[in-house]
Amino acid sequence: MPRNISQQWLHGFLDLCLLCLLADRRDYGRGLVERLAEVGFDEVPGGTLYPALLRLEKQGLVRTEKEVSPSGPPRKYYELTDLGRATMHERRGAWIQFRAAMSAVVEAPAARSGRE
């Protein structure tokens, strides 16, 4: 269960975030969590992250590859497929529209000043 409101929000946008991060470069699970934390999100629990990655894999949006690591067991790397890249572009367009609409409502001067 998400603990606070921003975690709940991220829950809804996690797939898009993962697609965008993977569009920049392939990565493994922990690497994705760290990159999300770097930009200011709370740490995404593994119980949320890995089912999301599995979902993207099942939808054919990412493919995986196991790679031996110099220290310890092999790591599973995630990489966008062509379908994943196309989906990422499509959803990013939808997000930009959505964000504009949200901003218009939430950040509008009327909403800030608490007009009745």
Binding site: Y28, G46, G47, Y50, G72, R75, K76
Partner: peptide, 21 residues
């Protein structure tokens, strides 16, 4: 799925229970 989960936790050096719930 089980092997993947355990490998990922081992690679991160944490107990799977604390990683996945």
């Amino acid at each position: 799925l089980t092997d993947d989960a355990l490998a990922e936790a081992a690679a991160a050096g944490v107990e799977p229970g604390s990683m996945y719930g």
